[in-house]
Amino acid sequence: MQLSVTLLAAARGSSLLAERFDDDRPLDSAGWDDVRRAAPGLAPLAAAELRYCSPTPRSRATGDALGLTPLIQPALRDCDMGRWRGHTLGEVTAVEPAAVDAWLRDPCSAPHGGEPLMAFIARIGEWLDTRPAQDGTRIVAVAEPAVVRAALVYVLKAPPPSYWNIDVGPLSAATVTGHRGRWSLRFAGGPS
C-alpha cells in the first residue's frame, strides 16, 4: 500500500526572533498575507482525500484559509516543552544554559520536564505509520515546523541530532510516500 503524505508547515504567528516554545499564538498579519500569496500554488493540496492539522491555532487557520477544512489531530501537536513552554530559546538559555546544552546534545534528555526529542520523533512517526488509507491515497497535514522536521527525521531514519539541521520555513511543504516503516522523501518538479 503506497500513500502520499504532504506535510505543510503552518504560516507564521510571530517573527522568528519572537518564536516561543510550544507556541499557541494565532497567525499574525504577515502570516495571513503569506497564506493569501501562497494559496494559488498550494491549491492542489485541496485534492487530498484526507486532510489533517495539528491543534495549534495557526495550523488550523492555515488549513482553513487554504480551503482544506482539516481534521485536528492531537498526535500532530508540537513537542511538549514542559516548563519552557511560552519562553524563547534566548530566555531559557539565559537562565538554564547547561540544561539547554544537554537538551541540544542528547535527544533522550528532557531537562524542561516535557517530552524528549526521541519521544517526539517517535510520536510523529507513529502517527504517520498509522494513517488509515487505501493504496494511492493522498494526505495533507498542516503542522508546526517542528512536527515537519520530526517527520522527516523519522522518514529518513536519520540520526536524531539531524533534527536541528532541518530548516522548515512557514508554508514550506515536504511530501513523503510509502507505508508503515518504509517511507521515502519525494521532491516535486523536474522532467518526468
Rank of each mutant, 00 (worst) to 15 (best):
A151C: 03
A61I: 08
S172M: 10
H112A: 12
R36S: 08
C79A: 10
R51H: 10
R77K: 12
D28G: 07
D33L: 13
P170V: 04
L3A: 02
A188Q: 14
S4H: 12
K157S: 13
P55D: 04
A174Q: 06
P74R: 06
L7P: 00
P55T: 01
C79L: 14
A158G: 07
D101C: 15
T88Q: 03
R36W: 10
R36N: 11
M118V: 13
Q73W: 09
L104T: 14
A173T: 11
Y154F: 07
A133E: 00
E126D: 12
P116N: 02
E96W: 01
D167M: 15
R186A: 10
L89S: 08
W103K: 04
A174V: 08
Y52E: 07
D101E: 11
A102P: 13
A143F: 02
R77T: 06
P191G: 15
L3D: 00
S172V: 13
P44F: 03
R58K: 09
L7Y: 00
W183Y: 11
F187G: 15
V140Y: 04
P40D: 02
A143R: 01
M118F: 15
L128A: 04
L50T: 07
V155S: 07
T137D: 02
R51K: 02
R83G: 14
T62I: 15
R36T: 11
V100P: 07
I139V: 09
V100S: 06
G31A: 04
D28K: 08
M1I: 08
P74M: 11
A61H: 04
A46E: 08
P74I: 04
T56L: 11
L117D: 00
A122H: 09
A38F: 12
V168Q: 00
I72W: 12
I166Q: 08
T88L: 03
V95L: 05
R37K: 09
A43L: 07
R138K: 12
V176M: 09
A48R: 06
D33Y: 10
R105T: 14
Q134T: 15
R36K: 12
D24T: 07
G67T: 06
H179C: 09
G125D: 01
R123W: 01
P191W: 09
M1Q: 15
Q2L: 10
R12L: 13
A10Y: 04
R123L: 06
A146V: 10
G189H: 07
V176Q: 05
V5H: 04
L171M: 05
A173C: 04
P97Q: 03
L128D: 01
L89R: 08
E96N: 01
G169N: 13
F187W: 14
V168Y: 02
Y163S: 03
V176H: 05
A174W: 09
L27N: 01
P97G: 05
